[in-house]
């Protein structure tokens, strides 16, 4: 008893100290993960969040970057009004939309059956072929686009050379002879062809990425389902359409969403293939190319920021519509 009485004040003190160190410990305990994450948070904040916030601010101002930060002038919604009534903006948006379709739809139409075939091939072949298909995806877009630029070249490009060969060939001449009338084709020079040329490069680069997603998806489907189907007499096509496709829905949904977002942001391929927007730019320029031009060639950062937000809204709208129509089924719900 006496001891407790005597130690009462000290206990209070100790308790207080223990409380303090407890609090400190819980503080460190609670914040430790964030300290570990801080390098990422700082970098993401500087290069991710800050520019987004700054761009909101910027889109309500006029600013010529060459004149320095002090020259921003508040103009309200003028940048938005100017951009929304700009025929080039609508033209480039239309270009972007068309190229997104031309490159996006074939990507999935090819990747799905190809992934299905790859899975049938067995492990070793599958690994090698998946790697081969994936290779374009990890190669620098600029390098790929430059090589395609050379291949698309009018006189010496391998594509036109091959077409000429087909048109002249004794076996193929009857089918390709008409090419003589249109050769040489300016794949990256003509406004009538540039969208197809850009779309082909995009298709070629990203089809492998989708194959990887779909092979991963197919791997989640249990073999028993196929076996049961075989016993029931389903042929290979039926197994693909009745088992593989329905069960792949969440994967398709995911991959298509990525394609929509990626293709609406298309920049590098059209930029290189139009030689820095110098040729076939009427039909070949995407909205991202256009906002780059407005910002860095025309030095109108305010308008460029407004165009970025308009692009953001458009992408939001497209993905929103896609979610609305396919979301619940796509994600595997009812």
């Amino acid at each position: 008893m006496t001891t407790t009485e005597m130690t009462d004040p000290t206990t209070a003190q100790e308790n207080a100290q223990r409380d303090k160190s407890d609090r400190q410990r819980t503080f460190w305990h609670k914040t430790t993960p964030y300290w570990f994450m801080s390098p990422y948070i700082i970098i993401f904040g500087t290069f991710g969040i800050f520019p987004v916030l700054f761009m909101i601010y910027l889109s309500f101002h006029t600013w010529n970057p060459v004149a320095g930060l002090g020259t921003m002038e508040y103009v309200g919604l003028e940048n938005y009004a100017l951009s929304l009534t700009d025929p080039t903006l609508w033209q480039t948006l239309w270009n972007t939309f068309l190229m997104a379709l031309y490159s996006g739809i074939p990507q999935h139409l090819v990747a799905l059956p190809l992934a299905y075939l790859l899975v049938q091939l067995g492990k070793r072949a599958r690994h090698w072929l998946t790697t081969a298909y994936f290779l374009p995806y990890v190669t620098s877009t600029i390098a790929i686009s430059m090589i395609f630029f050379v291949m698309f070249s009018k006189e010496s490009g391998i594509i036109n050379q091959a077409l000429t060969g087909l048109a002249n060939g004794s076996l193929t001449g009857w089918a390709f002879g008409w090419l003589h009338d249109v050769m040489p084709l300016g794949w990256v020079q003509e406004n009538s062809l540039i969208r197809y040329s850009v779309s082909f490069v995009v298709f070629w680069k990203y089809v492998g990425f989708n194959i990887v997603i779909y092979t991963a998806g197919l791997a989640t489907i249990s073999d028993e389902l196929y076996e049961a189907a075989i016993i029931d007499g389903a042929n290979s096509w039926q197994r693909f359409t009745r088992i593989a496709l329905p069960l792949l829905r969440p994967f398709i949904f995911f991959a298509v969403t990525l394609t929509i977002i990626g293709n609406m942001n298309l920049f590098d391929e059209p930029y290189v293939l139009t030689r820095g927007l110098q040729q076939a730019s009427t039909n070949g320029m995407t909205i991202s190319n256009y906002l780059y031009r407005v910002a860095w060639e025309w030095l109108d950062m305010g308008s460029a920021a407004a165009i970025s937000w308009i692009l953001f809204m458009v992408i939001g709208l497209f993905t929103g519509l896609y979610f609305w129509f396919f979301g619940r089924r796509g994600l595997g719900g009812e």
Binding site: V150, S153, K154, E155, S156, G186, Q189, R275, Q278
Partner: peptide, 12 residues
Amino acid sequence: GNISEWTEEWYA
């Protein structure tokens, strides 16, 4: 020849 300047075709 509708050849773009500063391309391989132009040099050729």
